Amino acid sequence: MTEATLDWRIDGEKLRLGLTRRGDGPLALLLPALSSISTRAEMGPLAERLAPRFQTLAVDWPGFGDLPRPRRAWSRADMAAFLAHLLAEVAPRPALVVAAGHAAGYLLAHPDRDAFDRAALIAPTWRGPLPTMLARRPDWLARVRAAVDAPVIGPMLYALNLSRPVIRRMARGHVYADPAFLAPDRFPAKLAVADAPGARFASVRFVTGALDPFDDGATFRAAGAALGARLTLVWGAETPGKSRAEMGALADAAGVTPTIVAGAKLGVHEERPNETATAILEG
Protein backbone atom coordinates (compact mmCIF):
# COMPACT_ATOMS: atom_id res chain seq x y z
CA MET A 1 0.00 0.00 0.00
CA THR A 2 1.27 3.47 -0.90
CA GLU A 3 -0.17 6.69 0.54
CA ALA A 4 0.21 9.88 -1.47
CA THR A 5 -1.54 13.15 -2.23
CA LEU A 6 -3.10 14.60 -5.33
CA ASP A 7 -3.08 18.32 -6.13
CA TRP A 8 -6.03 19.73 -8.07
CA ARG A 9 -6.82 23.32 -8.94
CA ILE A 10 -10.26 24.88 -9.06
CA ASP A 11 -10.83 28.57 -9.76
CA GLY A 12 -7.12 29.19 -9.21
CA GLU A 13 -7.04 27.53 -5.78
CA LYS A 14 -4.93 24.44 -5.19
CA LEU A 15 -6.48 21.60 -3.21
CA ARG A 16 -4.53 18.68 -1.76
CA LEU A 17 -6.42 15.39 -1.59
CA GLY A 18 -5.53 11.99 -0.20
CA LEU A 19 -4.77 9.05 -2.49
CA THR A 20 -4.02 5.38 -1.76
CA ARG A 21 -2.57 2.79 -4.16
CA ARG A 22 -2.55 -0.98 -3.77
CA GLY A 23 -1.75 -3.98 -5.95
CA ASP A 24 -0.67 -4.38 -9.53
CA GLY A 25 -2.39 -5.04 -12.85
CA PRO A 26 -5.20 -3.28 -14.72
CA LEU A 27 -6.23 -0.01 -13.11
CA ALA A 28 -9.27 0.13 -10.83
CA LEU A 29 -10.38 3.56 -9.64
CA LEU A 30 -12.16 3.46 -6.27
CA LEU A 31 -14.44 6.38 -5.41
CA PRO A 32 -15.79 6.63 -1.84
CA ALA A 33 -19.21 7.94 -0.99
CA LEU A 34 -19.84 11.65 -0.47
CA SER A 35 -20.86 11.85 3.16
CA SER A 36 -19.90 13.56 6.37
CA ILE A 37 -17.85 10.54 7.54
CA SER A 38 -16.53 9.21 4.21
CA THR A 39 -12.95 9.08 2.97
CA ARG A 40 -10.95 6.85 0.68
CA ALA A 41 -10.17 4.73 3.78
CA GLU A 42 -13.67 3.23 3.56
CA MET A 43 -12.54 1.55 0.33
CA GLY A 44 -9.53 -0.05 2.06
CA PRO A 45 -11.03 -3.48 2.90
CA LEU A 46 -12.41 -3.77 -0.62
CA ALA A 47 -9.13 -2.61 -2.20
CA GLU A 48 -7.24 -5.31 -0.30
CA ARG A 49 -9.46 -7.93 -1.89
CA LEU A 50 -9.24 -6.45 -5.40
CA ALA A 51 -5.46 -5.85 -5.27
CA PRO A 52 -4.49 -9.38 -6.39
CA ARG A 53 -6.23 -8.66 -9.70
CA PHE A 54 -5.99 -4.87 -10.05
CA GLN A 55 -3.87 -1.87 -9.26
CA THR A 56 -6.37 0.00 -7.09
CA LEU A 57 -6.38 3.77 -6.72
CA ALA A 58 -8.67 5.22 -4.02
CA VAL A 59 -9.07 9.02 -4.00
CA ASP A 60 -10.85 11.47 -1.71
CA TRP A 61 -13.42 13.87 -3.15
CA PRO A 62 -12.79 17.64 -2.94
CA GLY A 63 -14.44 19.06 0.16
CA PHE A 64 -14.37 15.63 1.80
CA GLY A 65 -11.61 13.33 3.04
CA ASP A 66 -9.34 13.68 6.06
CA LEU A 67 -7.28 16.73 5.09
CA PRO A 68 -8.17 20.40 5.74
CA ARG A 69 -10.66 21.77 3.23
CA PRO A 70 -11.19 25.35 2.04
CA ARG A 71 -14.32 27.38 2.54
CA ARG A 72 -16.28 27.01 -0.69
CA ALA A 73 -19.88 26.69 -1.80
CA TRP A 74 -19.22 23.24 -3.27
CA SER A 75 -21.45 22.37 -6.22
CA ARG A 76 -22.43 19.55 -8.51
CA ALA A 77 -20.28 21.15 -11.19
CA ASP A 78 -17.22 21.01 -8.90
CA MET A 79 -17.63 17.29 -8.29
CA ALA A 80 -18.27 16.56 -11.96
CA ALA A 81 -15.17 18.55 -12.94
CA PHE A 82 -13.05 16.62 -10.45
CA LEU A 83 -14.28 13.27 -11.75
CA ALA A 84 -13.53 14.39 -15.31
CA HIS A 85 -9.99 15.32 -14.17
CA LEU A 86 -9.50 11.91 -12.55
CA LEU A 87 -10.64 10.02 -15.63
CA ALA A 88 -8.61 12.15 -18.01
CA GLU A 89 -5.37 12.86 -16.12
CA VAL A 90 -4.99 10.71 -13.00
CA ALA A 91 -6.57 7.37 -13.91
CA PRO A 92 -7.16 7.45 -17.66
CA ARG A 93 -9.38 4.71 -19.08
CA PRO A 94 -9.47 2.43 -16.02
CA ALA A 95 -10.51 -1.16 -16.51
CA LEU A 96 -12.86 -0.77 -13.54
CA VAL A 97 -14.42 2.05 -11.56
CA VAL A 98 -15.93 1.20 -8.17
CA ALA A 99 -18.15 4.01 -6.92
CA ALA A 100 -20.17 4.16 -3.71
CA GLY A 101 -23.25 6.23 -2.88
CA HIS A 102 -23.32 9.61 -4.63
CA ALA A 103 -20.01 8.79 -6.33
CA ALA A 104 -21.96 6.18 -8.29
CA GLY A 105 -24.41 8.88 -9.33
CA TYR A 106 -21.59 11.10 -10.58
CA LEU A 107 -20.09 8.22 -12.53
CA LEU A 108 -23.44 7.56 -14.20
CA ALA A 109 -23.73 11.27 -15.01
CA HIS A 110 -20.26 11.43 -16.58
CA PRO A 111 -20.81 12.31 -20.25
CA ASP A 112 -17.97 10.21 -21.71
CA ARG A 113 -19.20 6.62 -21.70
CA ASP A 114 -15.85 5.46 -23.09
CA ALA A 115 -13.81 6.89 -20.19
CA PHE A 116 -13.86 3.53 -18.37
CA ASP A 117 -14.45 -0.11 -19.28
CA ARG A 118 -16.67 -1.36 -16.46
CA ALA A 119 -18.41 0.14 -13.44
CA ALA A 120 -19.34 -1.41 -10.10
CA LEU A 121 -21.84 0.74 -8.25
CA ILE A 122 -22.06 0.20 -4.49
CA ALA A 123 -25.38 1.29 -2.95
CA PRO A 124 -25.80 3.92 -5.71
CA THR A 125 -27.68 7.10 -4.77
CA TRP A 126 -28.66 10.32 -6.50
CA ARG A 127 -30.49 12.25 -3.75
CA GLY A 128 -29.09 13.54 -0.44
CA PRO A 129 -30.44 12.59 3.00
CA LEU A 130 -32.79 15.53 3.61
CA PRO A 131 -34.32 15.59 0.09
CA THR A 132 -34.80 11.83 0.36
CA MET A 133 -36.53 12.18 3.70
CA LEU A 134 -38.68 15.09 2.47
CA ALA A 135 -39.20 13.67 -1.07
CA ARG A 136 -38.38 17.14 -2.41
CA ARG A 137 -35.83 19.99 -2.24
CA PRO A 138 -37.62 22.92 -0.56
CA ASP A 139 -36.14 26.40 -0.89
CA TRP A 140 -35.44 26.63 2.85
CA LEU A 141 -32.60 24.13 2.48
CA ALA A 142 -30.55 27.00 1.04
CA ARG A 143 -31.01 28.85 4.33
CA VAL A 144 -29.67 25.81 6.19
CA ARG A 145 -26.54 25.93 4.05
CA ALA A 146 -26.13 29.65 4.65
CA ALA A 147 -26.45 29.17 8.40
CA VAL A 148 -23.82 26.43 8.50
CA ASP A 149 -21.51 28.56 6.32
CA ALA A 150 -21.71 31.49 8.76
CA PRO A 151 -18.48 32.23 10.70
CA VAL A 152 -19.76 32.02 14.29
CA ILE A 153 -23.04 30.14 14.36
CA GLY A 154 -22.04 27.79 11.55
CA PRO A 155 -19.42 25.76 13.46
CA MET A 156 -21.80 25.46 16.41
CA LEU A 157 -24.67 24.22 14.25
CA TYR A 158 -22.38 21.78 12.49
CA ALA A 159 -20.95 20.45 15.76
CA LEU A 160 -24.46 20.01 17.15
CA ASN A 161 -25.64 18.07 14.11
CA LEU A 162 -22.50 15.94 13.86
CA SER A 163 -21.87 15.27 17.52
CA ARG A 164 -20.68 11.84 18.61
CA PRO A 165 -24.18 10.58 19.49
CA VAL A 166 -25.57 11.87 16.18
CA ILE A 167 -22.82 10.17 14.17
CA ARG A 168 -23.43 6.90 15.98
CA ARG A 169 -27.19 7.15 15.41
CA MET A 170 -26.73 8.04 11.73
CA ALA A 171 -24.29 5.18 11.18
CA ARG A 172 -26.53 2.63 12.88
CA GLY A 173 -29.66 3.87 11.16
CA HIS A 174 -28.43 4.11 7.57
CA VAL A 175 -24.86 2.96 7.05
CA TYR A 176 -24.11 -0.19 9.06
CA ALA A 177 -26.35 -3.13 9.90
CA ASP A 178 -24.20 -4.22 12.84
CA PRO A 179 -24.66 -1.71 15.70
CA ALA A 180 -21.19 -2.61 16.95
CA PHE A 181 -19.42 -2.01 13.63
CA LEU A 182 -18.15 1.40 14.74
CA ALA A 183 -16.11 -0.16 17.52
CA PRO A 184 -13.48 1.86 19.41
CA ASP A 185 -10.87 1.08 16.76
CA ARG A 186 -13.04 2.57 13.96
CA PHE A 187 -15.04 5.37 15.53
CA PRO A 188 -12.16 7.84 16.11
CA ALA A 189 -11.29 7.76 12.41
CA LYS A 190 -14.86 8.64 11.48
CA LEU A 191 -14.86 11.47 14.01
CA ALA A 192 -11.62 12.82 12.55
CA VAL A 193 -13.30 13.09 9.14
CA ALA A 194 -16.25 15.04 10.49
CA ASP A 195 -13.95 17.26 12.61
CA ALA A 196 -11.42 18.12 9.88
CA PRO A 197 -11.01 21.88 9.26
CA GLY A 198 -13.49 23.07 6.64
CA ALA A 199 -15.52 19.84 6.74
CA ARG A 200 -18.84 21.59 7.22
CA PHE A 201 -18.97 23.31 3.82
CA ALA A 202 -19.23 20.16 1.69
CA SER A 203 -21.00 18.14 4.37
CA VAL A 204 -24.01 20.47 4.62
CA ARG A 205 -24.31 20.57 0.84
CA PHE A 206 -24.38 16.80 0.61
CA VAL A 207 -26.98 16.50 3.37
CA THR A 208 -29.24 19.19 1.86
CA GLY A 209 -29.03 17.95 -1.74
CA ALA A 210 -26.86 20.66 -3.26
CA LEU A 211 -24.43 17.95 -4.42
CA ASP A 212 -27.04 15.63 -5.90
CA PRO A 213 -25.75 14.43 -9.29
CA PHE A 214 -29.27 14.26 -10.80
CA ASP A 215 -32.44 16.28 -10.44
CA ASP A 216 -34.77 13.29 -10.55
CA GLY A 217 -34.88 9.53 -10.47
CA ALA A 218 -35.91 9.17 -14.10
CA THR A 219 -32.63 10.72 -15.30
CA PHE A 220 -30.71 8.54 -12.85
CA ARG A 221 -32.33 5.42 -14.23
CA ALA A 222 -31.83 6.48 -17.84
CA ALA A 223 -28.12 6.94 -17.20
CA GLY A 224 -27.95 3.43 -15.79
CA ALA A 225 -29.81 2.03 -18.77
CA ALA A 226 -27.24 3.63 -21.08
CA LEU A 227 -24.46 1.55 -19.49
CA GLY A 228 -26.50 -1.64 -19.21
CA ALA A 229 -24.35 -4.78 -19.08
CA ARG A 230 -21.23 -2.81 -18.19
CA LEU A 231 -22.69 -2.30 -14.71
CA THR A 232 -22.35 -4.38 -11.57
CA LEU A 233 -24.74 -3.36 -8.78
CA VAL A 234 -24.30 -4.21 -5.11
CA TRP A 235 -26.19 -3.06 -2.03
CA GLY A 236 -27.11 -4.27 1.43
CA ALA A 237 -30.35 -6.08 2.11
CA GLU A 238 -31.04 -3.76 5.07
CA THR A 239 -30.54 -0.53 3.10
CA PRO A 240 -33.22 2.04 4.10
CA GLY A 241 -36.42 1.58 2.12
CA LYS A 242 -36.50 4.73 -0.01
CA SER A 243 -32.91 4.32 -1.14
CA ARG A 244 -33.39 0.59 -1.72
CA ALA A 245 -36.39 1.27 -3.96
CA GLU A 246 -34.32 3.68 -6.09
CA MET A 247 -31.54 1.11 -6.41
CA GLY A 248 -33.98 -1.57 -7.47
CA ALA A 249 -35.47 0.73 -10.10
CA LEU A 250 -31.96 1.45 -11.41
CA ALA A 251 -31.23 -2.28 -11.72
CA ASP A 252 -34.48 -2.82 -13.59
CA ALA A 253 -33.74 0.05 -15.98
CA ALA A 254 -30.22 -1.23 -16.67
CA GLY A 255 -31.37 -4.82 -17.07
CA VAL A 256 -28.88 -5.93 -14.42
CA THR A 257 -29.37 -8.50 -11.66
CA PRO A 258 -27.95 -6.89 -8.51
CA THR A 259 -26.06 -8.58 -5.71
CA ILE A 260 -27.97 -7.90 -2.49
CA VAL A 261 -25.82 -8.70 0.53
CA ALA A 262 -27.40 -9.88 3.76
CA GLY A 263 -26.45 -8.13 6.98
CA ALA A 264 -25.48 -4.83 5.36
CA LYS A 265 -26.83 -1.36 4.62
CA LEU A 266 -25.34 1.53 2.64
CA GLY A 267 -21.83 0.73 3.88
CA VAL A 268 -21.87 -2.76 2.41
CA HIS A 269 -18.33 -2.40 1.00
CA GLU A 270 -17.01 -1.70 4.51
CA GLU A 271 -19.16 -4.14 6.44
CA ARG A 272 -19.14 -7.02 3.93
CA PRO A 273 -16.01 -6.53 1.76
CA ASN A 274 -15.68 -10.25 0.91
CA GLU A 275 -19.15 -10.47 -0.61
CA THR A 276 -18.76 -7.10 -2.32
CA ALA A 277 -15.41 -8.04 -3.87
CA THR A 278 -16.79 -11.38 -5.06
CA ALA A 279 -19.70 -9.64 -6.78
CA ILE A 280 -17.31 -7.23 -8.50
CA LEU A 281 -14.78 -9.85 -9.59
CA GLU A 282 -17.49 -12.16 -10.92
CA GLY A 283 -19.54 -9.35 -12.48
Results as ranks from 00 to 15, higher is better:
G241L: 11
G154Q: 10
L17I: 04
P179D: 08
D139Q: 11
H85C: 12
E89A: 15
G283C: 08
K14V: 11
D60A: 01
L141V: 09
N161T: 02
T276Q: 05
G173R: 07
G263K: 08
A135T: 14
P45N: 04
A77V: 15
W126F: 15
G236L: 14
A147P: 10
A192L: 08
D117C: 08
L281D: 06
E89Q: 15
V207N: 10
E270K: 08
A196C: 05
G44S: 14
S163W: 02
P197C: 01
A51Q: 06
R53D: 09
G236D: 10
P92C: 02
R172Q: 06
I260C: 00
A100F: 14
A104H: 05
A210R: 12
D195H: 13
H110V: 01
F82Q: 05
G224E: 03
V175W: 12
G65M: 03
G63E: 00
W8A: 00
W8V: 00
F206M: 11
T276N: 00
A159C: 08
T219A: 15
L130D: 10
A199Q: 07
A210K: 06
S38V: 04
D112P: 03
R53N: 07
P32F: 06
R145M: 11
L108R: 06
L191E: 06
A171K: 03
L141H: 08
G128I: 10
A123Q: 07
A99I: 02
D60M: 04
A115G: 05
A262R: 09
G44P: 05
L30Q: 03
